[in-house]
């Protein structure tokens, strides 16, 4: 299956990519996708964003991750299976009002 991953703002600069399309095995999880994504982005993005995301209980960079226009708030969601056509975006956060 295919997963489209988009990057925006500072995260685009950090990853060196605007968009990446990953070819993945059926029923793979977001964790599997993130591990695959490491091969496609700059080392700074891997060390500052992806590796912390894969750590247990690290909710910091989770706020950057938007799947199909929705944020995730539980690290456990990283282990849920993806569906063909899912869109993953790394977007800067918003605070306050």
């Amino acid at each position: 299956m295919k997963l489209v991953v988009r990057f925006s703002g500072l995260l685009q600069s950090l990853s060196g990519k605007k968009e990446v399309e990953l070819g993945l095995k059926e029923d793979c999880s977001l964790r599997d996708a993130l591990i695959e994504l490491k091969k496609n982005v700059q080392p700074e993005f891997v060390s500052q964003i992806i590796d912390p995301l894969l750590e247990e209980n690290n909710t910091g960079p989770l706020r950057l991750l938007v799947k199909n226009h929705r944020h995730m708030h539980s690290v456990a969601e990283i282990d849920l299976p993806l569906k063909d056509g899912d869109v993953l975006s790394f977007l800067p956060p918003m605070e306050g009002g």
Binding site: G9, V66, P92, P93
Partner: peptide, 10 residues
């Protein structure tokens, strides 16, 4: 810098 998120979130 917030436009990308706001646009993506509809």
């Amino acid at each position: 810098s917030g436009v990308a998120l706001i646009n993506d979130k509809h």
